[in-house]
Amino acid sequence: MENKVKVCVENLNVHYGEKQALFDVCMDINQNEITALIGPSGCGKSTFLRCLNRMNDVIDICKVEGSIKIDGQNIYDKDIQVEKLRERVGMVFQKPNPFPKSIFENVAYGPRIHGLAKDKTELEEIVHTSLKKAAIFDEVKDRLDETGTSLSGGQQQRLCIARAISVNPDVILMDEPCSALDPIATAKIEALMEDLKKEYTIIIVTHSMQQAARVSKKTGFFHLGNLIEVNDTETIFSTPANDKTLDYVTGRFG
């Protein structure tokens, strides 16, 4: 059975000044699924991801046209509060980027500025739950006062995931979350993603096709700013409809 559509992207065109980065991209992303975006560098997949929580707003020359609806509401509507949007659509980056604060404060920061906790007990509760959901609580519970940057790369990345889920988002965007991690830490993040999809909708940009094949239900292939093909991951990696996709997944692209 297909899950319900969480994010509906229609005719998305993105320009950076004169340069067009995305061309008429249309894509439906299902709720409680992991969707992978693949494609060579510069294909537009990260630009696409950044449009989903309006990260591109901070770039002056960036112009976004078309519509992106989350639960039916266009996130580019004038009355949308960007801060509220980013509460609903969290992001995890390529390089783990904990704040230079304690482990506790890293996770408490979001709920605090969004006013999600009434008191200290509730804040503690949120921090603990988030760390548990990010499968790192057991490793850090006795050292919550130590700085986030003292953790290993894989732990830092899970801390960043805990930070992202602490504000109770619907959607989590991940931009190459494992590219700086070793295979063990990568496997832990992938296992975590499997778990998190029960509660969240996850969209991951990855350069590892094996990772896309392992974790995602659907995969979209981008090339030169176009979404060439999106389909069930199994189809994309076995019998893609488009020759460009086939060339890319089999290592023939050049």
Partner: peptide
Amino acid sequence: RQPMANDLR
């Protein structure tokens, strides 16, 4: 090589 698609077949 971890072949994919037609290569794997």
